[in-house]
Design a protein around this nucleic acid. Structure first.
Length: 881
RNA sequence: GGACGAUUAGCUCAGUUGGCAGAGCGCUGGCCUCACAUGCCAGAGGUCACUGGUUCAAGCCCAGUAUCGUCCACCA
């Protein structure tokens, strides 16, 4: 495709462009990484989305940022790898399939384990491609040939390896403890999987013989095996050690009174009932004092046979009944309203029931210590730093991790039970006969917590436990990019497992980005109906605009961020701006000779824009290196729109459109092409599609912009003199335009302006007079000795006076108002600086350069004020006369 | 009960080591100027939540207050 082919539309049409380039990039293998290739390795593993999920804004942000980094590094000569993949998401996926079955009037039990798991695999095959297709739509340049799924054979092998190693070292064990049980999902949950929610409840004061105590869970009264008070509580000292026979709902019961530090004497009556079977605190108290466990609520959430006449009742139904019964028996002292936090299953929001059961645990304490040290010693760098404290706090207070789940979808625990001799065997390979007695074995029915396999992700995806070349080249990975919501779930687990399994950090940097909310600041959720669909946004505004929005939103210090159409729209306009700027360049290239070396010195605007470009490149590289995506995005935005389009293109039109001077024209063409081409490469990681499309239309281009080098800045690219001189020109133009605006003079009118420059600016203004004449629509004469013509407005720019002749007649009132305003502004500044310089402390203590700068500024501003005031006086006299 | 974050223009938000307050959108006025009206030019608009402190100098550092938000936590 060339500039000479079909006319280019004045509207950028993202859809066609995006559909064209992605498949081409992918099929040409640009995303593929080769461990044997040259270049310093740079690697990222994608946080694996749920295999059956679809793309939401969080994924879009997360993956856009990763893609920006990977495209940047790849262009910059690194051997860059981005591993994509998906997670089997045990409980989440199982819940979805169970709902499907439910709609068909079936349950997983009806199907049986094997058929159910088969069904989940089918669902995975069916919907599994959705999110990866959507990631392609987003432009994600990951190496799809290395796509992984947590239940792939290789990764499953890694899971077993990890499990066996931990078991062999005594860090995995099995035991009866109180757990968080979800009666709906029929599984245990880890502490992290329990959400807290404030709810209104009743605080019921129950009489236990001579003692009275408050509880929010009266139904667990049936499981009480003791009462507890604080050891120092004198009120109840006489009862400690006694066993009380007290009337209850079902005759008399025996409860032993114990003294335990866990009781807060100032809360309620200072007495608590101890139900070791249904409360974590009570469980611990029970253990300390050898109180028996009575389980009165079953795994189904209904009262057990132990509950006597309440057996079979739903636990909440039972609560109401038991309160009514106690009231009838006069066992209730009083009831108070009470607000407290209840634990909910993070998947289905069912109230979690604490129950005692036998589960598998990882003793993570020793792993956590190593993971803690890695962050403390900065071998893992968390960005922004403020998250390290949260990480420390969690790691320091870590408790055993319950890893077994009573689910069917997931990695089955590699442990086999022999019913004959009761032995348990953990193995990397499937066992069929008991190694001890030769008898039959059955595999443990439970599966592992999803996060167990995700915790291995950074190295399991690279071939671990094999000594794979990928692992040797790309591990430890360079950076992990994720939201703070899974800092504990995932990042902490990877840190622990990575260090334990591989003796190396799994990643050098962890970049924790913001979470996205809707325009009202609400958390997005399907139930609220406020979910912004990224695909719809891409459809409406284009992928590049969407990506740029996400990058501009990613400020490192921000926790939550909102997204609104306005913002995406403005970046859609930005893409369009770039498109049209390119159109201007491409349609003015006749006579341009690509290979030709430039001759002579460049004109000021060319030197200036090249210097600005260099500064922009430098800033973008710095910002990306610090994960300041928003700063990188806004820097390049400012450069493209304001420096390049608003100023340089307007200036370049002069040599471009003026016939005759071929050399000047070619010089402008060379700068236009160079700056545009470099800008496209600079922008490519943010806006991959439009940059490739335009780049391919340039007169000289390679195979793909993806393979082109990322812009670098050499010494000598910065041109301070050009920037300083251009500032004078730009200020002059702006000052004249300002007068034009204030006076309501049509832009079509050419004005006469006389400049009376200070000596050092005379040359600059002289050289740039054609520029100023065009940009400000004036006829400019420069005269160091000029005096003010009659009927001219005045502007003061950098020491120079500009007399803007207004067709001989100044709109006196307007000019006076304008001058008044200017003078007020300047006077304020003068006063401010004078005040500052008047204080001896400032002059004595502040650095000399700052004091000197202030002095200079004061002199300048005073001069400006004088000139403006003289002009105002002059106006007054002409007004009066 | 802890911890963390936020409070800056009408709105949404930047502000990296203290040295004259910034952007986008919106608003006002003028422009269909041969890349772009998804545009151009100009402009208005801030006691940087509050109170103290440190400093020659504070949006930024320190202490406290208020409001909002998030996470963690076994006061039943």
């Amino acid at each position: 495709m060339t500039a000479e082919s079909a006319p280019i539309s004045d509207r950028y049409d993202p859809t066609a462009v995006e559909q064209h380039w992605y498949p081409l990039w992918e099929s040409r293998g640009y995303f593929g990484a080769d461990p044997a290739k040259a270049g310093k390795p740079f690697s990222i593993v994608m946080p694996p989305p749920n295999v059956t999920g679809s793309l939401h804004l969080g994924h879009a942000l997360d993956n856009t940022l990763q893609d920006i980094l990977v495209r940047f590094k790849r262009m910059d000569g690194f051997n860059a790898l981005w591993v994509p993949g998906t997670d089997h998401a045990g409980i989440a996926t199982q819940v979805v399939v169970e709902r499907q079955l439910d709609a068909e009037g079936q349950s997983r039990k009806d199907l049986g384990r094997e058929a159910f798991v088969e069904r989940v695999w089918r669902w995975k095959e069916q919907s599994g491609g959705t999110i990866t297709r959507q990631l392609r739509r987003l432009g994600a340049s990951c190496d799809w040939s290395r796509e992984r799924f947590t239940m792939d054979p290789g990764l499953s092998r890694a899971v077993r390896e990890a499990f066996v190693r931990l078991y062999d070292e005594g860090l995995i064990y099995r035991g009866d403890y109180i757990v968080n049980w979800c009666p709906r999902c029929q599984t245990v949950l880890s502490d992290l999987e329990v959400e807290r929610e404030e709810r209104d409840a009743e605080f019921v004061y129950i009489k236990y013989g001579p003692l009275t105590l408050g509880t929010v869970r009266p139904e667990t009264k049936l499981g009480d095996t003791g009462l507890a008070v604080h050891p120092n509580d004198k009120r109840y000292a006489e009862y400690v050690g006694q066993t009380l026979h007290v009337p209850s709902v079902d005759g008399e019961i025996d409860v032993r009174v114990v003294a335990d530090e866990a009781v807060d004497p100032d809360f309620g009556t200072g007495v608590i009932k101890v139900t070791p079977g249904h409360d974590p605190v009570d469980f611990e108290i029970g253990r300390r004092h050898n109180l028996p466990i009575r389980t009165v609520i079953g795994f189904d959430g209904k009262m057990t046979a132990e509950a006597g006449k309440y057996a079979g009742l739903d636990r909440f139904e039972c609560r109401k009944r038991i309160v009514a019964d106690m009231q009838a028996l006069g066992l209730i002292d009083r009831i108070e309203p009470y607000r407290h936090a209840v634990g909910l299953c993070y998947r289905c929001k069912t109230v979690v029931e604490p129950l005692v059961s036998k589960q598998w645990y990882v003793q993570v304490k020793p792993l956590a210590e190593v993971a803690l040290a890695a962050v403390r010693e900065r071998r893992i760098r968390i960005v922004p730093r403020s998250w390290t404290k949260t990480y420390y706090h969690w790691m320091e207070n870590i408790r055993p991790w319950c890893i077994s789940r009573q689910l069917w979808w997931g990695h089955r625990i590699p442990a086999w039970h022999c019913d004959a001799d009761g032995s348990v065997h953990v193995s990397r390979t499937d066992l069929t006969a008991c190694p001890k007695c030769g008898g039959p074995l059955r595999q443990d029915p439970d599966v592992l917590d999803t996060w167990f396999s995700s915790g291995l992700w950074p190295f399991s995806t690279l071939g671990w436990p094999e000594d794979a070349p990928e692992l040797r080249t790309y591990y430890p990975t360079s950076v992990l990019v994720t939201g703070y919501d899974i800092l504990f779930f995932w990042v902490a687990r990877m840190a622990m497992f990575g260090l334990y399994m591989t003796k190396a950090v799994p990643f050098h940097d962890v970049y924790i980005h913001t979470l996205i909310r809707d325009a009202e600041g609400q958390k997005m959720s399907k139930s609220k109906g406020n979910v912004v669909d990224p695909l719809e946004v891409m459809e409406r505004f284009g992928t590049d605009a969407f990506r740029f929005t996400l990058a501009s939103i990613a400020a490192p210090t921000v926790r939550d961020v909102r997204i609104s159409d306005d913002r995406v729209e403005s970046y859609r306009n930005f893409a369009n701006k770039l498109w049209n700027a390119s159109r201007l360049v491409l349609s003015n290239l006749d006579g341009y000779e690509p290979g030709r070396k430039r001759t002579g010195t460049r004109p000021l605007p060319d030197r200036w824009i090249r210097s600005r470009l260099a500064a922009t490149i430098r800033a973008v590289r710095t910002h990306l290196g610090r994960y300041r995506f928003n700063d990188a995005a806004s820097t390049v935005y400012q450069f493209v729109w304001h420096d390049f389009c608003d100023w340089y293109l307007e200036m370049a039109k002069i040599p471009l459109y003026r016939a005759g001077d071929g050399a000047a024209r070619r010089q402008a063409q060379e700068t236009l092409v160079t700056v545009l081409e470099t800008t496209l490469r600079l922008l490519h990681p943010f806006m991959p599609f439009i940059t490739e499309e335009i780049w391919q239309r340039l007169p000289e281009h390679g195979e793909s912009i993806m393979l082109a080098p990322y812009p670098k800045v050499g010494r000598g690219h910065a041109d301070a003199a050009a920037e300083r001189d251009m500032a004078i020109v730009m200020d002059t133009v702006t000052a004249i335009r300002n007068i034009r605006g204030e006076m309501r003079i049509s832009p079509a009118t050419t004005l006469d302006v006389t400049a009376r420059p200070v000596a050092e600016h005379a040359a600059v203004l002289g050289a740039a007079s054609a520029l100023i004449e065009t940009l400000a629509r004036v006829r400019l004469s420069i005269d160091p000795a000029a005096s003010r013509p009659a009927g001219a407005a005045l502007a003061v720019v950098g020491g120079a006076e500009l007399y803007v002749s207004l067709e001989g007649v100044v709109d006196v009132a307007a000019e006076r108002a304008r001058l008044d305003k200017e003078i007020r502004k300047v006077a304020e500044t003068v006063g401010f600086i004078e005040g500052k310089l008047a204080r001896p402390e400032f002059v004595e203590r502040a650095p000399a350069e700052i004091v000197e700068k202030e002095r200079q500024r004061l002199a300048e501003q005073r001069e400006v004020r004088e000139k403006l005031e003289a002009s105002l006086a002059w106006i007054r006299t002409s007004e009066g006369g």
